[in-house]
Nucleic acid binder design. Structure first.
Lengths: 339, 339
DNA sequence: GCGCTCAAGTGTTACGTATAACGTCGCTCG
DNA sequence: CGAGCGACGTTATACGTAACACTTGAGCGC
């Protein structure tokens, strides 16, 4: 639905505080050293907080003729390298009061579009991954139309959601491994507090609980190869008996760390231990042996998210329905050895 | 240096075309069906082209109260998965005349900053990787202050450059392999037309040419694991004699494809063939065996780039000086076997 | 008591654009 | 012959903000 009441302006704040618009600008711009009394300044700040006032960036930029924003053009989003470049640039920029907007020239999708098209900013709406939960508070501050990716359809009040059918994916993984004869599992779980990972943990536990004689151990890890390596080593050391014969990872990248940990202990994949991932990124097929994983159609996910947001902006209710996922069986899973 | 003459406005265009500002707005906004004659419309377009007119986004957004821009919040830039999400979202958005601005919550750098700080847009300046060359034409259209990352200091007229000392890095790789006794090399080169890759090719060739009895073959490949796999297989099939004992990759990710190709042919690393990369991303240490590579400090690169741009914006001349790189010797390089 | 300064604000304007409302021709048609 | 109408524009205005120039009242020295 459309924005209910229009956004408050500095004039609304002024009226609420009983001062002129100019005074509001001075106070909120921190330029009131000896021009406004402390008491009125506080009154203005209070009114602004009350109304949920946010300055209109377009108007400010127009007035000032300057933006304090910089464009970073990178060849693709895929590389850790340019992620680092962005991080460094964003840090320095933030220190000097600048913002950074990213223009990733889209991969393989024809020639690069006009970079400035992606730099219009000031927002009509928001698409947010539930993994970026820490940023969500700031987003909910505004009343912007919001679409959540992979989030609790009930919990995210009012916001539309677009979800991958990760429950089905987890079930497929579990059934595949159970069918091979595995009974003792290690779940290498991402330590990100996000709905999607909670769902996977519940779905895996539920599916295994339905089969007698199964055991499930869970190890939490940061979302990095090194973290997965350390977490797996710790979990394997702790597992005195009921040694897991299958490691279920929340992400392909984690599997790379698991591979390393298993190699260090002299365990072979899949002969001694089976490993699975989620995502099916290029890395999955590059690992040795190639990784069995659940393929998520990331581009379709993005398209559906955007469709949903545009629907919301047009006053339509976006069509629900989870996006199906697909189990890709490769060489990292096999029946457990029977010693 | 500061912007010489201020940017032309629609009023300037109007004056140049001998019409009113409103007419310019009508013509350029494609809303002149029966309101302006074809001849005057063409005159307006010509004047706009002549002056290099670009509409002021801040003013337009202010006027329209709408942005046709959407924010995409993702947990990090590192993942191929969210790169796909962005690609899909950007495609759909473009079809409907919308732009997408990216807010990657910075990895591990404290809690997420205000997403809207990074969304101010309309630009004061540009930082561009030389790998995103296709986007550069559009950028040069404006007279925006520009900093190039890893670009020819002479060729990019006027623009400031910040470079990694990739020549030194290439020399270190070459010296390391030569020192181990290698003489027959395969250079797996990225097929991106960028200064940085040209420099590497020249530096490698020059260093090897200084040693008698060396051979150098070059294979070009797209910047992907699959591409590197195919290119390596093709190159190995073609290499009847003077079989390369060392493969020098332009990027760590390419090495993953090389590993796969070598395994397929039953060649062992480093016993039969040594492999090197560039970047030192997490993947490098996750490969088996761990990859010898040149470590580039991506964050420092980003920081220096931003420093340079802020210097330019302040009217200072940014300090030159290449950023040093470091050879990281791991397990993928060893003396060649002597049959 | 008069002029001066200083604190504490207010009135007004401009940034560049899009569009609603308003001319002004020349020509046609009744 | 005059009303009307389409073609071709123009004038005027508002979007929300920051900042310059100005006002007002009080305090204060002499």
């Amino acid at each position: 639905m459309a924005r209910g009441s229009t956004r408050p302006t500095s004039r609304d704040v002024a009226q609420a505080a009983g001062v002129s618009q100019a005074a509001v600008s001075l106070v909120l711009g921190d330029k009131w050293r000896g021009r406004v009394s402390e008491t009125t300044a506080e009154r203005v700040r209070e009114a602004a907080r009350e109304l949920g006032y946010r300055p209109n960036l377009a108007a400010r930029n127009l007035r000032l003729g300057r933006t304090r924003t910089v464009l970073l053009v990178v060849p693709a989003l895929t590389t850790e390298f340019f992620a680092g470049v962005y991080t460094g640039a964003a840090r320095v920029a933030a220190e000097r009061g600048f913002g950074v907007v990213l223009y990733p020239s889209p991969e393989g999708v024809g020639p690069a579009r006009d970079p400035f098209a992606s730099a219009q900013a000031a927002l009509d709406g928001v698409i947010a991954s539930s993994m970026a939960a820490d940023a969500l508070t700031a987003i909910r501050g505004d009343q912007l139309p919001l679409v959540m990716l992979d989030s609790d359809p009930e919990g995210s009040l009012g916001a539309a959601t677009v979800n991958l059918d990760i429950t089905d994916g987890t079930h497929q993984i579990a059934d595949h491994l159970l069918g091979l004869g595995h009974r003792h599992f290690l779940h290498l779980a991402a330590d990100i507090p996000s709905w999607t990972f909670e769902v996977r943990a519940r779905a895996l536990a539920a599916r295994l609980a339905a089969v007698p004689g199964t055991s499930l151990r869970t190890a939490h890890t940061p979302m990095s190869i090194e973290g997965a390596l350390a977490a797996t080593e710790a979990a394997l050391s702790a597992a005195d008996r009921d040694h897991p014969t299958a490691v279920v990872c929340d992400d392909d990248k984690l599997a790379a760390g698991v591979y390393k940990a298993l190699r260090r202990r002299g365990l072979r994949i899949p002969d001694d231990v089976s490993v699975t991932g989620v995502d099916d990124i290029a890395l999955a097929a590059a690992l040795d042996p190639e990784l069995t994983t659940v393929r998520l159609d990331a581009e379709l996910f993005g398209e559906r998210g955007m469709q949903a947001l545009l629907d919301v902006l047009d006053g339509r209710t976006p069509d629900a329905g989870d996006i199906p996922v697909e189990l890709v069986v490769r060489a990292s899973t096999a029946p457990p050895s029977t010693p």
